[in-house]
Design a protein around this nucleic acid. Sequence first.
DNA 1: CACTTTTTTAGAATCATTATAAAGTAGACT
DNA 2: AGTCTACTTTATAATGATTCTAAAAAAGTG
Lengths: 132, 132
Amino acid sequence: MKYIEKLRNSGLRPTKQRLQICEVLFDTETTFHFTINDLANKIKRQLNHKISLATVYNTVHAFEKKGYLKQIPINSNQTYFDTNISDHHHFYDLKEEKLIDLENSDVGPIKILKKIGGKKIKSVEVLVKLED
Amino acid sequence: MKYIEKLRNSGLRPTKQRLQICEVLFDTETTFHFTINDLANKIKRQLNHKISLATVYNTVHAFEKKGYLKQIPINSNQTYFDTNISDHHHFYDLKEEKLIDLENSDVGPIKILKKIGGKKIKSVEVLVKLED
DNA sequence: CACTTTTTTAGAATCATTATAAAGTAGACT
DNA sequence: AGTCTACTTTATAATGATTCTAAAAAAGTG
């Protein structure tokens, strides 16, 4: 199985649950956005059995820490994650409450002119809110 | 009192609590970032009495809806607000867990090349994460 | 297999936020 | 000032996402 190596290399034991979550997250044509709840439902639908919610939380956080998922900075009562870990941005459709990817190439280059002493820029994320 | 008009013009009755919250929020040299909890504490400290937490929530949301406050898009267990309602951005210092303003003039112009049919851009917000 | 460490799990705990509904207040009109 | 109505405030309860707990299960090692 192709995810066993990946997990081992990250120092994560390739357990049944983690491998199944990998399938649901990464065996897809396209990347997608999700909340923990979305993911738990998708797992149940797709694998026909449930994985404990605590495990889903643990796994998503572990994957995020390892860089296999990204959190999307947006204000919502739930946390949104993205399986697209490339350097990119988001539209947020306020009416539909839906996120849409915005590739880096669709945003002109961003220059941050202000510097903060002793700190390095880790990421630059753009959120474009849309209305009708 | 200078906030009475402002509130009335927004269709908000100028109640004692709202006026006091206006003082705490807007009678300052500089703008600032806060969570509801920060604000509730600041009120208690500065006015020497408490305003019900529910009222603080109600008022902050009312002010945000009217455009007197902005929510800052960031992932945290609490919601961050900003009394700086000018078009600007933020640094987020991951180590200190602190927000720092980033004026529009400190960010090169941002061009959003992708268009979404029937939707207008309401805002463009940049979050720059900082590490050591 | 025996042993240690990590992981999973159900359920409880936490904590920010929102809802409720009763009491208080503002504004308008006499 | 008094009356009326609609809006506000308030304490408290309810909600709901997330985290914690600690016991059972599974993985890795020899």
